[in-house]
Amino acid sequence: MASEAHGAGGHSPLAQFEVTKMVDLQIAGLDLHITNSAIWMMAATALVIVFTTVFISRRAMVPGRMQSLVEISYEFVANMIKDNVGHEGRPYFPFIFTLFMFILACNMLGMLPFSFTVTSQVVVTFGLAFVVFIGVTIIGFIKHGLGFFKFFLPHGVPGFLAPLVIPIEVLSYLIRPVSLGLRLFANLTAGHTMLKVFAGFIVPLGAFYIIPGVIPMAAVIGLTVLEMAIAFLQAYVFAVLSCIYLHDAIHMH
């Protein structure tokens, strides 16, 4: 009983998000130590590379299970771009596909026991969101030149409202990467914390009587399924919103 209480107290539900130094690495005076976050990111990258190269290496006319899975994910992203960006979105397929697969791999690896959820770090999600934001803004300026500034004054707004509308539109444009990154971060962090909190109830309740421990156990099983769905959904939402922002930059309204 005492050891269980200690076990429950020793592991905060937030301890899983702690970034720790795993490998010390000093190159030319630079501190390049590898953290658990970096290791799981590399694992996600390796997983995606293996997924998209090894599984498809046979190139069978009638695909097997694994090849079919790769082809489904390819078509899934291709359709996403076709629906949300249109034909002009074709050149950006590699980027969106990479983004989607990387986030999906990070989220799914985070579901493994004892793993680290990379996308529960604000730095990572904001990094991804700002890459999209900066890229999309540059694409907008390349496609439309200075005409891209018209983006901040919607059609049909009377001239005397421009001083009010333009700052609001600019702000709402600047907010997009933050809400994009925050959404991914909040969903993953909230889900994993909830999972850990419910899991923390199992042993203390089960130690008194067996039956009450079953209830949080069932909740954890249900939540795990839910988290799997959220892991996929959030990767999808991130990719779809990137597509929508891309559409806005290319078509301007």
Binding site: D83, N84, V85, P154, H155, P167, I168, E169, L171, S172, I175, R176, S179, C243, I244, H247, D248, H251, H253
Partner: peptide, 26 residues
Amino acid sequence: FLILGMGAGFINVYRTVTGLTHGSLR
């Protein structure tokens, strides 16, 4: 900026609920 931010927030919420999902701000 707090007041402008409220406006921008409401616009973003409004767009999320209505048009934005069609890939268009309008």
